[in-house]
């Protein structure tokens, strides 16, 4: 079968195609015929040795996100059966409960082989069934970006109808945040460097779009747009460089979920105290959150925002497209 490997991790040029024997069926694992995979910002970091401890073998298969069909199961597998349409939680061992640091030991596309393959042997305890209305390409966008957005909005943010949600930029996590928040009756404000992208996210349901290039004090624009109240939940996908403004834009008792490393800076935190706001570090989420999120996606029939689909053999083009940041939402790869 064909796979992609991360090679020497000197940048996009290191991605290399390889062939391997078909995976064997082993205890506790399911073999998945991968139908689609999706890219995340961190895949750009992994391929450039900028993510975590950077001790990955050259043969590591990248990508934490994908969707496919179960074609074989090993002994002891009871939760999924042959023919099931599934996705996997990014941290394969994080089934429920609180975060423990050892979970990075089974992280798809980082410390264990990921989804850039024709067939994947996956620990069955990490799998979850997907709603019928999702195509393979749509389902592939869920595991990292979707669950991260869900974790900020629900387990961390306790979103309720009528809340205002602020999402920064129009990347994968932000657009998932937009769609999940709209499904829960929230008002959504989203920022972008591009008016064209803002028009697209408005078509997806965003109530207010703010161009952070032409409106550098976008925090004030958020306050103006909410009659001074601010955002109840902020998806802080950018990093400490935008955090001061995110706190300014937050409401009293606001919840700011911090996930991003796109821009580092020197944040002013005093607003947290004055507003009784909460800043939470978020590390994607557990399988329980994935299952809860899929329930919401199924009930609200959310159609994930797939920007562009590349062929499996064009994987390097998909990476380059993500890096160009021309997308909104998700960049996806089809496996045939």
């Amino acid at each position: 079968m064909k796979v992609w490997e991360i090679g020497e991790q000197q940048g996009l040029g290191s991605l290399r195609a390889a062939t391997r024997p078909e995976p064997e069926t082993t205890r506790g694992h399911a073999i998945i015929k991968v139908r689609a995979s999706a890219l995340n910002h961190r895949d750009l970091m992994i391929i450039a040795k900028r993510y975590g401890a950077n001790v990955r073998p050259e043969t590591r298969v990248p990508l934490s996100d994908g969707a496919g069909e179960v074609i074989a199961i090993g002994e002891g597998v009871t939760d999924v059966k042959i023919g099931d349409r599934v996705v996997a939680n990014m941290f394969a061992d994080w089934t429920e409960g609180a975060w423990v640091p050892g979970l990075f030991g089974a992280d798809y596309g980082n410390t264990i082989d990921g989804w850039a393959t024709e067939r994947l042997s996956a620990p069955a305890r990490s799998l979850a069934k997907i709603p019928d209305h999702l195509s393979w390409e749509e389902a592939a966008t869920i595991a990292s970006a979707g669950v991260t957005a869900w974790n900020i909005l629900e387990p961390f943010g306790h979103l309720k109808a009528g809340d205002t949600v602020l999402a920064l930029g129009t990347g994968g996590v932000s657009v998932w945040g937009l769609q999940l928040a709209k499904a829960a009756g929230a008002r959504v404000i989203i920022t972008s460097s591009s008016d064209q992208k803002l028009a697209k996210v408005k078509a997806l349901g965003a109530d207010i779009g703010i161009n952070y290039k032409t409106t550098p004090d976008w925090d004030k624009a958020v306050l103006d747009a909410t009659h001074g109240a601010g955002a109840d939940i902020v998806l802080e996908t950018v990093g400490t460089g935008t955090l001061t403004r995110s706190i300014n834009a937050a409401a009293f008792n606001g919840r700011i979920g911090m996930v991003g490393g796109l821009d580092a800076g020197q944040p002013q935190l005093f607003g947290l105290v004055a507003k009784n706001a909460v800043l939470g570090g978020i590390t994607v989420g557990n399988r329980r959150m994935l299952v809860d999120m899929l329930k919401s996606v199924g009930a609200a029939k959310i159609k994930p925002a797939v920007d562009k689909v590349f062929a499996f053999d064009d994987m390097p083009k998909a990476y380059a497209y993500l890096e160009s940041a021309a997308h909104i939402g998700k960049v996806v790869v089809r496996h045939d």
Binding site: T240, M258, P267, A274, L279, G280, G281, T283
Partner: peptide
Amino acid sequence: EAPPALFPMVGNNITLKGIT
């Protein structure tokens, strides 16, 4: 003297809240 280093919050799922 320097702005606080927040990065450990993300990797360790830490919550920071202003309390009045």
